[in-house]
Design a binder for these strands. Structure first.
Lengths: 212, 212
DNA sequence: GTTTATTTGTGAATAATTTCACAATCAATC
DNA sequence: GATTGATTGTGAAATTATTCACAAATAAAC
């Protein structure tokens, strides 16, 4: 059981996306070189990433597009539906509810939570909004596996504690602050300002050659 | 002129955020150890990251919170206003317009573009929406330095080409596809589905010990 | 002002990741 | 069915990133 790095997982997602494209374009097979080129990687990188999980290719031929896509899909857990809850219906939260890519990949937003009485008990894009007071109970009852936190900074830790106490093991955090969770809970942190800061760094430091 | 890695730039953003918090909490000075702990890093990592840009600390004491924050702010280019344009007023685009963190860090969204006649020439959160037909001209006239692309997949490359032709060197891409740009243009790619895929990978592969 | 406590800054050591290079294997051709 | 050409899978090598460890420097205590 080797350690799989974040970078490898990220690249698997990219391969999955590329393979979907190649599939719709009608490519029956694909080589590591071709796959690498579309993602600006080396063929060796592609093969090494895949090698952690098995050997899926045919020497002399490459990979069967459809098969590899499905294998990677399975590795990423995209072969079934995940029950997702979203907390916080501000700008970001609202956008995420209708984010097409989520549904497409099997992430089903089943529950919405907010603490604003004007939003509670009304439907938002077809989903009833619950009071964050009932969070723990409803997360448990609905067998929620992934929670998206999109609340303001000050509320983030409090909400995270509740989510953890409901037994949820994976959190996607959009609040611009680091949340503390037990060892066995995985948190992914998305901060869009950070991405802009990266760009402004590049604009401000063109004397440094930024590694890409 | 060393190469600064993506990870280092990302961590600088995190330090900046932590330092802002420490400043409001009234901490006058801060040690690399303290800073490291809040970000789950090692003190050596913090010091090494900073060392690429100079030596900002005082031995025996640590760093002056306010000063270090400002130094990192300067490194990240947060010491002045950046002119930003946003293309695509769908779910994601709309959310980004009102994303508080952007304004806070000095990213000023000056122009909005869409190709939907119902949105064009109307105001959206106080900003007039322009036709994407006038993109190149307006990007140039308004000295736009950073462009956020939040259009559907199919339109992304076309829009990116226009942005590049207007001389813009940095792009934040929310379209779930890789866009091709010349060597001297920096693109950051944000894909929220990818983050969920990371989580579903973790849920599906608990036998692999995922590196964190 | 001397001593003691800390904490930085950094070269060296270690660990992790990526790339290389090539034997092994298979498809396609003749 | 042998030969050729292509491409995988993978140890070894190279590169990159992180951590260690300690001298140098400073603040604080006495």
């Amino acid at each position: 059981m080797p350690k799989i790095s974040d970078s490898t997982i990220r690249r698997l997602s990219m391969y999955y996306r590329s393979l979907s494209e190649f599939e719709t374009k009608g490519y029956k097979t694909i080589s590591s070189e071709h796959l690498a080129k579309t993602e600006k990687l080396t063929p060796a990188q592609v093969r090494k990433d895949l090698s952690f999980f098995g050997s899926f290719g045919t020497r002399g031929l490459g990979y069967k597009t459809r098969e590899l896509k499905e294998r990677i899909g399975k590795i990423l857990g995209l072969d079934h539906i995940w029950n997702v809850a979203l907390i916080g219906l501000g700008n970001v939260g609202s956008a995420l509810v209708s984010y097409k890519e989520f549904q497409k990949q099997g992430f089903l937003i089943k529950l919405l939570f907010d603490n604003d009485q004007r939003k509670i008990n009304k439907k938002h894009k077809g989903i009833l909004v619950s009071d964050v007071k009932d969070l723990v109970e409803k997360l448990k009852n609905n067998k929620i596996e992934i929670v998206i936190i999109a609340v303001p900074t000050q509320a983030a830790q409090e909400v995270a504690d509740l989510v953890v106490s409901a037994g949820v093991k994976t959190i996607l955090n959009f609040a611009p602050t680091r949340i503390k969770v037990p060892q066995d809970v995985v948190v992914r942190f998305v901060n869009m300002a950070m991405e802009l800061e990266h760009l402004s760094f590049c604009l401000s430091n063109q004397d440094f050659s930024v590694a890409t």
